[in-house]
Design a protein around this nucleic acid. Structure first.
Length: 183
DNA sequence: GGGACGATGTAT
DNA sequence: TACATCGTCCCT
């Protein structure tokens, strides 16, 4: 498989543009010489400190500092004490959450990538991979094929965020069978 | 020092 | 619909 890394400039654009553009691209994690590859099929845009669903809206802290750093790096956090979630930083406190991938190669048979927690488990991503560059190194984004049809909805699990909970900031490949089941 | 609360997944 | 489980944030 050809794995052409996306340049860091890919993420240095409007967060919604990046969230849509990430659909169809590949996420690659090389572990012990094995490339674990997923095709991104679902994302959510978190727009920055003014977006009440975005972690950076709680202020600039040690945890959220990475979102204010250069675009094109990873933001990985632990949720509910057991699941990791991975984001692509777009800068100024904004990021794109990766919510689902289709397993492509390097996985156990039957492993799934639908859902943010399953995605990180599938690819072996934990907080050890927080604040890593995504255009080089063991964890990187690689060019895929643009999706034909993009579905849009409100983001999942952010009901606490007032009107921001209703904004159409979740994007998914309408043709994929690996999009997470929304509630 | 301590309590509330998750950008979830799984089993009931 | 219950709940496992722990880092982060703020002291409500």
């Amino acid at each position: 498989m050809t794995l052409e890394p996306l340049p860091s400039t890919f993420a240095a654009r409007d967060t919604i543009v990046v969230a849509k553009a990430l659909l169809g691209q590949r996420l690659v994690h090389r572990v012990n010489g094995v490339a674990r590859v997923g095709r991104i099929v679902e994302t959510e845009a978190y727009l920055g400190p003014h977006d009440l669903a975005c972690h950076s809206s709680k202020g600039r802290t040690a945890r959220t500092e990475v979102m204010f750093g250069p675009p094109g790096r990873s933001y990985v956090f632990l949720i509910y004490g057991m699941h990791h979630c991975m984001n692509v930083v777009t800068g100024d406190g904004a990021a794109v959450l990766l919510r689902a991938v289709e397993p492509v190669e390097g996985h156990e048979d039957g492993a799934r990538g639908d859902g943010p927690g399953r995605l990180t488990k599938l690819l072996g991503i934990t907080r050890a991979q927080n604040d890593w560059p995504l255009d080089e190194g063991p964890l990187f984004l690689a060019r895929g094929v643009r999706v034909r049809s993009i579905g849009v909805s409100a983001r999942i699990g952010v009901d606490y965020a007032g009107r921001w909970a209703k904004e159409p900031l979740r994007f998914f490949d309408e043709r994929s069978k690996h999009v997470s089941s929304s509630r």
